[in-house]
Amino acid sequence: MKLSEIVRELEAVPLTDEDHLELEITRCAGSDLMSDVLARPTEGILLLTGLTSIQTVRTAKIAGVSAVVFVRGKTPPPETIELARTERLPVYASPLSLFVCCGRLHGRGLTGLDGRR
């Protein structure tokens, strides 16, 4: 699924530039626990999270996450968005809950980190 389609499905707005909309994403994780993200095979995934701290961006960079969507209508603090811009990590904000975001993307064929649906 292209990142552009994911963004539309999640009614999300971009918080950084939109240079990555052609990115192809096949796997997705929903987590507020960064150590769990770091423990799993997260290369190239989409991360859905309600955690808006600057550590979300650092975790994403370390773990090789391709894009992040902040859920539940949360607005990250400026330093989080600033670091995402510097690190060229595409980040978005969705008004939907984590549950609804997961459901919509699952319905469109995205899998979990181990490829299961």
């Binding site: 960064m34 993200v37 770091l38 550590q55």
Partner: peptide
């Protein structure tokens, strides 16, 4: 609040 402190750090390092 930063998404850490779940007792996964050292086990992750060991893995």
């Amino acid at each position: 609040e930063m998404g850490f402190g779940a007792g996964m750090g050292l086990p992750n390092m060991k893995t």
